[in-house]
Amino acid sequence: MSAQLKMKIAFKLFASLTDYLPADRKGNRLELEVDEGTTVADLIRRYNVPEKSAHLVLVNGVFIPPSERIRHRLQAGDELAIWPPIAGG
């Protein structure tokens, strides 16, 4: 088995989802080294974010629909940001 290649990405959880980040977090952002090919859904699962709470999912500011999270592979340097259901105005 060949060694899995790694890449760096940023993982951000906002509003009430912040609680799913490790306790020693600083702010809302974690820098992670993940396996190449890691999908959005992989990280949502890894941090135990309930699926229905991962409401607004952006990669580099672009919306990822729920149906694409399982196949959207992250690229090195990507910024993944997730919010629960929210609104403003």
Partner: peptide, 23 residues
């Protein structure tokens, strides 16, 4: 509704600051 039942009372409209910045 998750937005009017939980999102707005908890974080208010200000929760948009990071969203809109990210976009």
């Amino acid at each position: 509704n998750a937005v009017t039942g939980q999102g707005l009372p908890t974080y208010g409209t200000q929760v948009l600051m990071n969203v809109i910045n990210e976009m």
